[in-house]
Design a protein around this nucleic acid. Structure first.
Lengths: 183, 183
DNA sequence: CGACGACTGTTCAAAATCGGACAATCGGCT
DNA sequence: AGCCGATTGTCCGATTTTGAACAGTCGTCG
């Protein structure tokens, strides 16, 4: 059973790269979004729930430090810490790759790539994102509270008063929280 | 491995009954508290965390309806729904026993009792209380929140900022909740 | 060293939540 | 039907929580 990869965002200053990535991924994913600049990164991330971001390391011409790419990684992590980022680069500097992975990058592919390699990297990154989201959800207090309330309501067969008492809330408080969680 | 039964509260209007219960239970439990009246029930229950309450059914002389005992049960359940109540009575009216158990009484012993029967009933009731408390704890929102916070803190190795983000809180909010839970 | 980024701990006015109270409704029992 | 206790849904002034801001600390790197 091959899980279908969700939306993928590809960011590179070269339109040819974007097109090549689109060709390679369109059959493997639910959707491929492309962007030539990292300026609107936050906007794009908030608009969609991507499974993977494919990010170019070198935006500034003549600057091969990867500053721009690492900065993008940080900004992505700030918006969605669970989202995996796969770097693309034409320069195979080892120290850069090490730094990128240490900071939480998922993988590193060299341009030009072999399509099957790219697909494999994106698949793995998507799986990583899903696992991270799964772990994250177990911590989110809102989700935990919602689950506890649902358990309590089920255990007391919809009796609000008893459920509230079991949860350690007043009835009014339980009403508020149920409304908040859409129950 | 025989678990030691925790504090037991015995309520009966007859001091002889209280003494007999004390003799039967003192070796089997951590503590036996006795009271001749049900008036101060709430006060006693709030002062200690009992494992079992032994409650007489007939307080009002000439009244064998068990009204007084059933009322006591209700008041106990209002304070601590998980606490098991064992009824004592000299009159073996079936309908009364059925009513008492339907309302959540744990057991029913006839006076005069055989000490080993009483001890067995108290042991079972104590186990019932502990199980009910265990189930209850799984619903209590404060306990659930506390556990989630501890998990998050451990997972992020004490890093408050990251733990707060994972929990979906601001740092300040996490500080407040940690203080509230004594962490 | 000195600068920098990340993290900490606390403050305070604004905003959300609290819970006791109320009238209405439900469900069982005579 | 009529009664009574339990439950429900909502209200509102009192209380608590919130989060942006700030100053201080820690660790790292040039």
């Amino acid at each position: 059973m091959t899980e279908l990869v969700g939306p993928v965002l590809v960011v590179d200053d070269d339109p040819d790269v974007l097109h090549a990535a689109w060709l390679a991924l369109k059959a493997e994913t639910t959707r491929v979004e492309t962007s030539t600049g990292s300026a609107v990164l936050e906007t794009l991330l908030k608009a969609d729930r991507f499974d993977v971001v494919l990010l170019d390391m070198n935006f500034a011409l003549g600057d091969q430090s990867g500053r721009e790419g690492l900065d993008g990684l940080g900004r992505i992590q700030a918006v969605d810490p669970a989202l995996s980022v796969v770097f693309m680069t034409a320069y195979g500097a080892l120290s850069l790759a090490v730094e990128a992975l240490k900071r939480g990058g998922a993988d590193f592919v060299l341009k030009p790539w072999r399509n099957d390699k790219l697909v494999a990297a994106v698949r793995a990154a998507a799986a990583r994102t899903r696992e991270a989201r799964r772990v994250e959800a177990a911590f989110d207090l809102d989700a935990v509270e919602r689950a506890a309330i649902q358990r309590a309501l089920e255990h007391h067969r919809g009796n609000i008063s008893r459920a509230a008492a079991a949860l350690g809330l007043t009835r009014a408080a339980l009403y508020r929280r149920m409304a908040k969680h859409g129950l």
